[in-house]
Computed example of a mutant assay.
Amino acid sequence: MTAAQPLHATAVAQWRPGIGWRAILISGPSGAGKSDLALRLIGRGWRLVADDYVHVFASGEALYATAPDTIRGRIEARGLGIIGACVQGVVRLVLAVELTDPTPERLPDPDERRLAGRCVPLLRLRGFEASAVEKVAAAIAPL
């Protein structure tokens, strides 16, 4: 197992019957919509892993995400403040989502992000698009 690597990002997890909890890591510049996208996913039944900073570590061939103790169970709702959220502990990380300002390519080639020495598929999208939640759900479906 490699040591946890703190990343400026947000992570949320979804329960998948027969598979268990699977997390996505949402990254992007400040104000890109990381917490906003996470809140919309939480509204669809996902659980918060960590907001603002995420510890990512490898164990075996897999990647895992967890919250630093100091921020566990809290998420920023811009315009409202810091609020509590139902949290999921250590979760296997299966997808990286990078929030971009320019419009992503219509039909991009598959890409990946390397974290803690392992690679996960990478999805680039605009976080505030109404369809962002559905795009994340479609991207995680086969994982």
Rank of each mutant, 00 (worst) to 15 (best):
A3T: 12
A4H: 08
Q5F: 10
P6Y: 10
L7A: 04
L7R: 14
A11S: 15
V12H: 04
A13F: 00
A13V: 00
Q14R: 15
W15D: 12
W15K: 10
P17R: 11
G18C: 04
G18N: 02
G18H: 08
G20C: 03
G20E: 00
W21A: 06
W21C: 01
W21S: 04
R22V: 05
R22M: 08
I24S: 14
I24H: 08
I24E: 09
S27P: 03
S27D: 00
S27I: 04
G28T: 00
G28F: 04
P29N: 05
P29V: 12
A32K: 03
G33A: 03
K34C: 06
S35Y: 02
D36R: 05
A38R: 03
A38L: 01
A38K: 05
L39V: 14
R40V: 11
I42M: 03
L48P: 04
D51L: 12
D51Y: 11
H55F: 06
V56C: 00
F57S: 15
G60T: 06
G60M: 05
A62P: 01
A62H: 15
Y64K: 14
A67T: 03
A67K: 03
P68I: 07
D69N: 13
T70G: 08
T70N: 13
T70D: 14
I71D: 08
I71Q: 14
I71C: 11
R72K: 14
R72D: 11
G73M: 14
R74W: 15
R78N: 05
R78M: 10
G79L: 14
I83R: 11
G84C: 07
A85E: 07
G89H: 13
V91M: 13
R92P: 05
L95D: 07
A96E: 12
A96M: 11
A96S: 13
V97C: 10
V97Y: 01
V97D: 02
E98D: 09
E98I: 09
T100G: 00
T100C: 04
T100D: 01
D101W: 13
T103M: 15
T103D: 13
P104S: 06
E105Q: 10
E105C: 02
E105Y: 05
R106I: 08
R106Y: 11
P108V: 07
D111F: 02
E112N: 11
R113M: 15
R114D: 08
R114K: 03
R114G: 08
L115T: 09
L115N: 08
A116K: 02
A116Q: 02
R118T: 14
R118N: 10
R118W: 07
C119G: 08
V120P: 01
V120L: 09
L122P: 02
L122T: 00
L122I: 01
L123D: 03
L125M: 12
R126N: 09
G127N: 02
G127S: 04
G127M: 05
G127L: 00
F128P: 07
F128E: 12
F128Q: 13
F128H: 15
E129C: 15
A130Q: 14
S131A: 15
S131Y: 14
A137P: 06
A137D: 13
A141T: 06
